[in-house]
Design a protein around this nucleic acid. Structure first.
Lengths: 137, 137
DNA sequence: CACCATCTGCGACAATTGTCGCAAATAACA
DNA sequence: TGTTATTTGCGACAATTGTCGCAGATGGTG
């Protein structure tokens, strides 16, 4: 499953703090951060639904959205990807670095530690082939 | 200046380790990681040039590429962006987390620490407005 | 000097993402 | 129950990115 894009992550973080929210609520909350037109927010919500990131429940003409992605595994995936891609770190990241994060509490921190360890060990085996002489693969 | 994309970062990391490289050399080195067609590599190189990430010097029918982005400031920017965007951390990230990274040595680590501190303090002042009643901004 | 292996610039195409607008459906209210 | 305020689904468009193919320029060789 692909990673959420930056704006999508913003929406997910919001939903992780307040579960069912209507499109308008989400839009208003994000107004301070994303300055989007209402349609942009809804379109993004729609696409997130297509990707299976969130679920949409229509109720009395209003759509309520809920996350389908678990918070810590998602954040852990982001962390691991970052560590590997940017710094080529293979060991799990020390959770200490997230200590001051306002969106992760003690319990979640414990989960995070475990998740990071898991993601790091079975090392992503990225096998590739293809090796032409000249043009194109 | 925008952030390099994932493949672009890969190319930059390569150049940081071996300064002037021809398109083919870059392509071959990255083959293990990116499995791209030769044209894809060159196109990416071209676009990186447009963005001012690298410089291209044509010499005897061969193009040699060099980085225009400094290693540590670039990595620090990535780190800071990640910390802020994903974990909403405002304090600078502890450099300890990068200790085991093979691509950063002791001296660079010191720079990194300083850079992270700088990036964290003048907190990104992101001002936005727009607040409609209903549709569109 | 003709020929062949390389390179290069550049145009193309599909998929993704940021952003909207609009017309039809729904609900609330005079 | 007709009018108005909201919502929603969906189509659109531009920019970015992943990937190529091609035709022309360049250099080495017999």
């Amino acid at each position: 499953m692909q990673q959420p894009t930056a704006p999508e992550l913003e929406i997910l973080k919001l939903l992780w703090s307040k579960q069912p929210l209507t499109a308008r609520e989400i839009h208003d909350e994000l107004a301070t951060v994303l300055s989007w037109g209402n349609s942009s927010t809804r379109k993004t919500l729609e696409r997130m639904g297509d990707k299976g990131f969130i679920a949409c429940e229509t109720m009395a003409n209003k759509n309520s959205y809920t996350t389908l992605l678990d918070k810590m595994p998602t954040l852990a995936a982001f962390a691991q990807d970052f560590a590997k891609r940017v710094f080529e770190l293979n060991e799990p990241l020390p959770v200490a670095m997230f200590a001051s994060s306002k969106l992760v509490n003690a319990d979640e921190m414990a989960d995070l530690e475990k998740l990071l360890a898991e993601l790091a060990s079975p090392a992503h085996a990225q096998t590739k082939n293809t090796a032409m002489k000249d043009n194109e693969s």
